[in-house]
Amino acid sequence: MQMIHRIERWLCVLLLVAIVFLVFIAAIMRTLGYPLIWSVDVAQLLFAWLAMLAANQTFHHGQHASVDIFTRRLHPAYRELLFSGLDVLMIVVLGVLVWFGVELFMANPQRTLGSTSIAYRWVTLCVPVGAVLMILTLATRLTRRHHRENPEAGL
């Protein structure tokens, strides 16, 4: 798990650097009169992957934005319980994305990405893959929370 997470983090860094590079080079080359036709399309392909992988990273290192007006006032034990429930809910939603993401991936292999001959399904694939990774993260978090809760209940 830790391994996947670290690979993913470095992958995100690489993607971000690649996107900056592609868009910057595209602008420079066009100014010089040699536009790179595919660079922006590839940048957008990488951007979709960056968005989904980074969304999983945010679960590890930060927090996805949420309203805490209600949860802050909750008793810690109930809050933990609520958070576990929300994690389960998120896993279900992500499961839906995986299922229908794969369906979409299979449905339209002909469509191409912008001016390139790259199949658009490689953009689409970022949703099921990203969702699977997020499910793994949430499941790990859920079991950890569960294990921690037991000794607390003993106190």
Binding site: R30, G33, Y34, P35, I37, V40, D41, G114, S115
Partner: peptide, 19 residues
């Protein structure tokens, strides 16, 4: 437009196609 037909056409007509 960033599709092969358009890019080829503009290229063949002498300009540098820029999607």
């Amino acid at each position: 437009i960033g599709a092969p037909v358009w890019i080829q056409t503009i290229d063949a007509m002498g300009a540098t196609p820029t999607p």
